[in-house]
Design a protein around this nucleic acid. Structure first.
Lengths: 339, 339
DNA sequence: CTGAAAGCGCTTACAG
DNA sequence: CTGAAAGCGCTTACAG
């Protein structure tokens, strides 16, 4: 075992060196209570000389706070996830919170969730990383939680931050129909029960109806927010001879798979098939042709969620629902800018 | 303030309910020491009924361990970073360690580094996220540290995990020369003092020399592992009329910028200019043309680093240097597979 | 403005 | 196999 600071210096050592009580040192460090100027100097000097670093564990135990925020995920998902993490990290670190990340609950002897009131001050819960009943437990314990990309189950009043899906989806499908005269537009669904996907499909449907086009169930297929799944879905539709002239993939990730499937089939984008996505990942503008999509402000979602959680921790209340605006990004894959 | 568990249940409550001492409950939870079967049952039952969750802070204070690993970064960098984080997270969570992430040191009253012996059991230090003197401090305190993509400064024996750069770089340049008959090959450097970039440049140079081509300083330019910087560098070279027929970008990120610059100039890849990179990011295979590059096993780097750190924490020693192999990935941008 | 002391919830020799 | 008790390093009423 590596010995860690065999004789770590404590607040007691500092107090002694400065000729004051530990209470005074504590007050100085935490800037709580008045302290004579002369005393401050002595304490600071002692701390500097001894290179004192407070014990977080002891502080946590004494205050019943942890100063850390937990982030719960199912997995760290590639491109999509990174900007969100950046946003979260930026806000939490600025507010002097530690960020604890956990992708899977790791039940231990006598524990239930890897994170909770005992080791965090509040939780950021991404999508369905934990079950509704676990959310309910936290909720009942009045423990600060903010949901990301997921609205609270069954009537719980848990703050949630997510993005506007439906109107944007409707707009992108409108574009396909009105500008590019597409009539048979495939919708590639996300994973089952995914809220975003639900609203995106809803937007797709409304657009069709508004243009007197009948939503054809045969044009709805599984994309799962996954390249390979999307790719196979399109291959299958092609093999089955289902006719279509455009594809609205529930997310960009799926659109990448669509590109592959279409390419393999010798179909051209956008001449033969218009393709549009949702998310506006980094990659999307680099595709050939560049992908027309809807920009989801993922980074801002992360920031906003962290903000709300910190506010919830500090004041006891937060915005019930934060709906971040999305934006239509017209590029080449729909048929625009195309000679 | 949100009240957290106003009356949180403790080990004392469990002990009382089970009719044993707290010592026994502690032993049971930690599986240290023998306990009568009958007693175990009673304790477990009490824990279940009360939904007991141990206080991490108290445990940490008592044991002087934190069970968390700190990850120090300069920033969370896009695509490149994600796989590494995945690798790290996987290993740490499997070994039941918490992962604490910090991108910037946030000096507080009386503290020096956001992470250290007081709140972590060991540190994963990525690139130059902290200064050499801080590394030296940790080293002298015999605190477990593993360096990622960076060798230890001045003779310190700190374990390091990184990738093979030079031989792979030499190989990719060889390929450009031998297979595609390129003669004026640009090298786009990474950020100043970046070790990887140094060795990649070294490989580039050796390949040229081995083929009797004089390394031309005019062909070395700044890429900074950054799209825009790389793009501007190439635009500048083009404007200055410096002739070249291939570009070896120090990393894929820069190669993306190269694509943009070449495209703007009306130059074709690979017909007019071969382009190759280093890293093999997710995006690279999706570019048009797909990017010939060197695969850096970033995910494995993360895993391996976490492994080494945990070993270091537990046994007191680890592999001094772990050099992960890289692999040449031939795609289209060099000129292969091109009719 | 400062100090003595209790308490936060665990772990761990030390006895038995 | 089990318990009593000290100790981990802080914070925070309570007095003064």
């Amino acid at each position: 075992m590596t010995k860690q600071n065999s004789k770590s210096i404590t607040i007691r050592d500092v107090a002694q060196a400065a000729g004051v009580s530990v209470a005074t040192v504590s007050r100085y460090i935490n800037q709580t209570g008045q302290i004579a100027e002369e005393t401050r100097v002595r304490v600071q000097k002692a701390m500097d000389e001894m290179k004192y670093v407070p014990s977080i564990s002891a502080r946590n135990l004494a205050t019943n706070r942890t100063n850390t925020i937990g982030l719960l995920l199912t997995e760290i998902m590639g491109e999509f996830f990174t900007p969100m993490l950046e946003g979260i990290e930026k806000v939490t670190s600025t507010a002097d919170y530690n960020l604890l990340i956990s992708t899977s609950s790791r039940p231990q002897h006598g524990s239930h969730l890897a994170m909770g009131p005992k080791n965090t001050d509040g939780l950021l819960v991404f999508l369905d990383s934990i079950s509704s009943s676990e959310i309910a437990n936290l909720y009942q314990a009045n423990f600060p939680v903010v949901l990301i990309y997921q609205s609270p189950p069954g009537g719980m009043k848990i703050p949630c931050v997510t993005i506007e899906n439906k109107a944007a989806s409707r707009r992108i499908v409108d574009h396909l129909i009105e500008v590019h005269n597409r009539k048979r537009i495939v919708f590639l669904r996300g994973p089952e029960d995914n809220e975003d996907s639900y609203w995106r499909e809803n937007g797709w449907q409304q657009s069709l109806i508004a243009h007197n086009l009948q939503p054809d169930p045969a044009l709805i297929s599984q994309g799962d927010y996954n390249r390979e799944v999307a790719r196979n879905s399109i291959k299958k539709m092609l093999a089955e001879g289902i006719p279509f002239d455009a594809i609205f993939s529930g997310d960009d990730e799926g659109a990448f798979g669509v590109y592959a499937a279409l390419k393999e089939a010798g179909l051209r984008i956008p001449e033969d098939v218009s393709v549009v996505g949702f998310d506006d990942q980094l990659l999307s503008s680099y595709l050939n042709p560049s992908l027309t999509t809807i920009h989801a402000p993922t980074r801002e979602v992360g920031q906003e969620a962290a903000h709300q959680l910190i506010q919830l921790i500090r004041t006891g209340s937060a915005e019930p629902l934060t709906l971040l605006p999305t934006e239509l990004i017209i590029r080449d894959s729909c048929g625009c800018h195309h000679s």
